[in-house]
Structure formats: C-alpha cells, structure tokens
Amino acid sequence: MKTPIRIMMMSAMSVLGACQGTLRPAVLADKSPETMAEVTGVLAKAVNRAQIQLGASDPTVQSMISVLPPPPGPHESNSPAMPIVFDIVLMGEDCYVRSREGGEMYALSGIACAPAEAGN
C-alpha cells in the first residue's frame, strides 16, 4: 500500500513543480489608488482580515508585497507577530500574489502586471 501512495505523491509533486515553473516574478504596472485598493482587498481576503496595512515596499519596483500584522491590543506592550509576505507573479498573462508561507495563490483580476527585472 505504501508504494502506490508514494507514487501518487511523487506524481502530484512533479505536476505541481511543473506548474510552479511557469510562474514569473512580476511587479504591478501602476500603484494608482484604484489599483492599490484592489490589491489591498485581495490581500485582506487572503489573510482573513477586514482591514490591513501594507508594508513600505513599492510593488511597482519590487516583486513582493507584505501585509503588516495588526497593532498590539490595549493590554499588550508588543507583539511577536510578523508581516505576511506575498510574491507578485505572472502565470501566462494573469497576475497573482502567492503567499511565501503556504504557497496559496490569489488572482489579481483586472490588475496589470509586468515581468520583474532581474534582481527584484
């Protein structure tokens, strides 16, 4: 029984690896208020929070974007929470953000992206 399961897992991993190979780092084509509102909405759903604050990176220059943790509550002096980092990627002509932590992908429908230059 272990052998068929192992074969199925290895087949699934190779298919996933092939899909991952078609992803290209990308940047947003613009950071207009409308674009950033759309991106913020997608990321808020991705992290399951109603309101989020984005990190300081420029997604038109860098192919990553981060969601800052919520501020500490009134009874906390500090928080060990870390930002959640997403990579901006192109799959074909479609733009996505991909969680660095779990690899989940979220479509940035209607948002223009461009391939990132090397080193971003």
Rank of each mutant, 00 (worst) to 15 (best):
A81D: 15
V97E: 02
R98M: 15
N78K: 14
P72Q: 02
P72M: 00
P69M: 04
V89Y: 05
P69R: 07
I65G: 09
V97Q: 01
A81G: 06
G92H: 07
P71D: 11
V89M: 07
S77D: 14
E101L: 14
D94C: 07
C95G: 07
P72W: 01
R100C: 07
E93D: 15
Y96A: 03
M82H: 13
D87V: 00
I84K: 06
S79A: 08
H75Q: 12
G92D: 06
V85H: 06
M91C: 03
E76H: 10
V97S: 03
G92R: 06
H75C: 10
D87C: 07
V85G: 00
S99K: 06
I84F: 01
V97K: 00
R98C: 07
E101Q: 12
I65H: 04
P83T: 08
P80S: 07
C95R: 02
C95Y: 00
D87Q: 13
P69K: 04
G73T: 13
P80R: 08
P70M: 00
G92M: 05
V67M: 06
A81C: 03
S66C: 15
E101K: 09
S77H: 15
N78P: 00
F86G: 09
P74A: 05
H75V: 11
A81P: 06
Y96L: 10
I88Y: 01
V89P: 03
F86N: 04
M82P: 00
M91I: 01
S66N: 13
V89K: 12
P74H: 07
R100L: 15
R100A: 10
A81R: 14
E76F: 14
I84L: 01
P80L: 00
I88P: 01
A81V: 08
P83Q: 06
E101N: 12
E76R: 12
V89H: 01
P70R: 13
V67Q: 10
V85F: 00
L68H: 10
V67T: 06
I65Y: 02
S77R: 11
D87K: 13
L68S: 03
V85R: 09
P70K: 13
F86H: 06
I65S: 08
E76W: 08
I65D: 09
V67D: 12
P83W: 07
E76Y: 13
S79D: 11
H75T: 15
E101F: 08
P80C: 10
I65V: 15
I84G: 02
G73I: 02
N78R: 12
C95L: 04
P71F: 13
L68K: 08
P74C: 01
S79I: 13
R100Q: 09
V97W: 03
V85Q: 06
M91S: 12
M91D: 08
V89T: 12
S99G: 08
A81E: 11
I65A: 10
A81L: 12
D94S: 13
Y96M: 05
M91P: 00
P83H: 04
S66M: 13
S66W: 04
I84P: 00
G73N: 09
P71H: 15
P74V: 03
D94E: 15
M82S: 13
V89G: 02
P72N: 05
G73V: 00
L68I: 03
E76K: 12
L90V: 04
D87R: 10
S79E: 03
A81M: 11
N78C: 10
P83V: 04
R98D: 02
R100E: 11
I84Q: 09
R98L: 09
P70D: 11
